[in-house]
Design a protein around this nucleic acid. Structure first.
Lengths: 223, 223
DNA sequence: TCGTAGTATAAGGTATACCTTATACCTCTA
DNA sequence: TAGAGGTATAAGGTATACCTTATACTACGA
């Protein structure tokens, strides 16, 4: 019962959570991609995480988070999003950069710092990218909205959140003003996984489908 | 020319600086003690730091910081003391705990965060324990005041700073109200490295000599 | 159903950062 | 000046977290 979760272990558990490991088995190959390691390395680590009780490995299918794993993931995500709030709201740092800066800090943050940060920030509920901040030791991974990539042509919605994959993605979306709160309408969806054409802020914006799948939308029923 | 300074490397360089490696050779045994590793391990690491140009090893005498080493140490100390200010002034966390909490954060802090933190905190000049915050890339390790352990009997002074060795030490001194700003008079110095008897806040306080050597004093000429 | 893409495991290697044990060596003090 | 205590190095071990190469196995689509 060692409470030794190294930075590496924490990053893997967070990755599994962000790949949906709380609901469906996540293929280890996906984890390897996300962590930028070889499948062999990811496999080794999954074995370790399994023996430490954070994941359950279904052969040839993927890994699922256990309760302990989900709790750990939520606590890491909690820390990260709180730091993002601090970096953006207080330090006025770049919205797109905040994600990776917070990722460095999240592993070095004691519980008492997290709780003090919560009060200091006024108990924020969402990070600057619109993602919900889990409660401490939460067992559920909150999901908001539908993917912009799955919004039907002609339909409208308001951007709720951006899944913060990388600095690159965030900077790109920030530059096109695809930010939480913005209203968008899908004008056209090109065939063969082609890009979406969106109407927003009285402008037309063309967005790749993979990028659109990182944008979470609250569909507006009466546009 | 790799800008890879691992947490371990950073901690060793900081230790050497705090042991006076900017002025006199620090015996590697002292470094080993401070880092809580064996002399053999410290020796291995000193070899690496030497090859990376952070220290200079004088055989059987000790290690000295190079320019690069001193710059690194100052930047680490700068980060730590800034975080201490944030933790104590903004988050209202424990004065004694802030040192080690900041030590965790200091290695995970990007340059842009440091600079944003400086503005946010209003460019503080000293940490909550009274130690000066070095400028970015500073080449000089600032020293303030004289050691309380070297204050002559009968003399008075004002506490400038506490050398933050450990949580234990800080908690002890905090409990006795030995804080920056307090005025103290040395009433008696027991022989054979015995404890000091101090007069402060209309009370008598007895303090071990080793502890007194962690307290920095501005001597008051006309008590 | 066959093959391929993806998944699993074995074997062996690297780098970091520690450890122990043993030996040699220097410096300083009694 | 001799010995003790501290310092240096060699040799070999551990754990983590990666890697490559090779082999085997599974699942799924054509």
């Amino acid at each position: 019962m060692s409470m030794n979760s190294s930075e590496s272990v924490e990053m893997y558990v967070k990755s599994v959570a962000e790949l949906g490991g709380d609901r469906q088995p996540v293929p280890i190959g996906r984890v390897a991609e996300r962590m930028d390691v070889t499948p062999v390395s990811a496999n080794e680590m999954m074995k370790r995480l399994g023996s430490q009780g954070y994941i359950e490995h279904q052969m040839y299918k993927g890994v699922l988070l256990t309760r302990a794993g989900l709790t750990m993931a939520n606590n890491i995500i909690r820390r990260q999003r709180l730091w993002e709030c601090f970096l953006v709201d207080k330090l006025k740092l770049d919205w797109a950069r905040s994600h990776e800066l917070a990722c460095d800090l999240e592993h070095a943050t004691a519980e008492e710092v997290v709780e003090a940060l919560v009060s200091y920030l006024g108990s924020p509920t969402h990070c600057p990218h619109g993602n919900p901040i889990p409660e401490a030791d939460s067992q559920e991974l909150l999901e908001t909205g539908v993917l912009l990539s799955e919004l039907a042509t002609g339909h409208s919605g308001r951007i709720l959140a951006i899944r913060p994959e990388s600095h690159e993605v965030l900077a790109y979306l920030h530059h096109r003003m695809l930010l939480p709160g913005t209203e968008v309408t899908v004008v056209e969806a090109a065939p063969l996984q082609g890009p979406l054409t969106l109407h927003m802020n009285d402008q037309e914006v063309v967005l790749g489908l993979n990028l659109a799948s990182l944008v979470l939308i609250e569909e507006l029923c009466c546009p």
